[in-house]
């Protein structure tokens, strides 16, 4: 049973108060995009054994989406940040590098 700190409420939230939203930082492909790009956007999702960038919704709380960086193997959480951040904050990337110097899957 996971728990994350909602970066908006700045408080620990239980998995049962949240709704998962899949992979984070997808770039929307709208009208005019190529078939291949649109296909990738719609269907291709990462499912790494390791560092993963995800979206979660504090559905039973403030109702806001946020980003989570989690290791799917150890469940270690490297941090949470705003849904409007288009890239993970440097602080989090540094923490991952420190833990996994040769880190794979790091964006």
């Amino acid at each position: 049973m996971l728990k994350f700190i909602c970066p908006i409420c700045e408080i620990e939230t239980d998995e049962t108060e949240l709704t998962p939203g899949g992979e984070a930082h997808l770039k929307r492909m709208g009208p005019g995009s190529s078939d291949q790009n649109f296909y990738t956007y719609l269907f291709e999702r990462k499912n790494p054994r390791g560092i993963h960038f995800e979206r979660w919704l504090h559905s039973y709380g403030c109702g806001k989406w946020f980003h989570v960086v989690r290791c799917t193997k150890t469940m270690e959480v490297f941090g949470t940040y705003s849904a409007q951040d288009t890239k993970p904050p440097k602080k989090i990337l540094d923490a991952i590098k420190k833990k996994l110097p040769n880190g794979k899957n790091v964006k």
């Binding site: 620990e12 239980d14 049962t16 108060e17 039973y60 709380g61 403030c62």
Partner: peptide
């Protein structure tokens, strides 16, 4: 509710949305 209701966490000022 899965939130922490201990008096030092959920205080007389607290307002929580949860299930």
């Amino acid at each position: 509710t899965p939130i922490n209701l201990c008096p030092n966490k959920f205080t007389s000022k607290s307002f929580r949305r949860t299930r």
